[in-house]
Nucleic acid binder design. Structure first.
Lengths: 129, 129
DNA sequence: CAGGATCCCGTGGGATACTG
DNA sequence: CAGTATCCCACGGGATCCTG
């Protein structure tokens, strides 16, 4: 039912439906590995195995799942070069690249949060640093 | 949308551990009802039943869980007025209030996303409008 | 190389009922 | 009013092995 979205500052967050936009954004990036995948793709396109090596601990099944979802959500693009050995590259779409400011702000808040809740560090620390 | 990013742009996202900050922020707001609770609390403190009435469909158990987690995460504060009938108020902490810009940016991105993926609307639409 | 196919499991969250 | 106490289940995600 809600179609046009008046994204003005005054109406922000007033309307029930506007909350959905936040939930939608959340749904798109809330996967276990998605922000990490986004980070890997920020510098440029990456191949499947490059991603898998970067994301230490992820299985190929899960990586495939996350990539497929992100592709369906329109934030990454999958390019299959029909050649042997197989070569597939994943890259951010414009929409995906527009997540950068969001991630940046989340990072800022998160850093502040972690500084105040040091005991909560360990659950977010990557194993591979 | 802000394509130009503020200050510490160089350090952002370079380090493994900086990704954790994003994941941490995500973990704090990723609950099924948390952004909705945040929105309810933005105008000011709310009582338990006020929240439950606003969040149509939530059970008291789940509401309690989400509130407890958010309290533990330091983004809301629980004030128990020891009086009868029982009265407990939940309010944002300063840290919680600092999520506002994050939510705002997520809302902007989400609106853009929903505009491009109209078929995905329904899964985010609230039932109570 | 880039996945598919299976099997498996913890847990976030829902439904319902009860209580100080 | 502001919660507990149980029971329950889907599903996101992990582990392992297989393939065009």
């Amino acid at each position: 039912m809600p179609t046009d979205l008046p994204v003005s500052y005054e109406t922000f967050w007033q309307d029930e439906r506007l909350a959905c936009a936040v939930s939608a954004a959340l749904g798109v990036i809330a996967g276990r590995w998605k922000v990490l995948i986004l980070r890997e793709l920020l510098p440029g396109a990456q191949r499947f195995n490059q991603l898998q090596r970067a994301l230490v601990g992820i299985s190929s099944k899960v990586l495939t799942e996350q990539l497929r979802q992100m592709e369906q959500d329109g934030i990454i693009h999958r390019q299959d070069f029909a050649e042997l050995p197989l070569r597939v590259e994943y890259a951010l779409t414009p929409l995906g690249r527009q997540l950068h400011p969001v991630l940046h702000l989340m990072h800022q808040w998160g850093s502040d949060y972690l500084a105040r809740q040091p005991q909560r560090w360990e659950q977010w620390v990557s194993q591979d640093d």
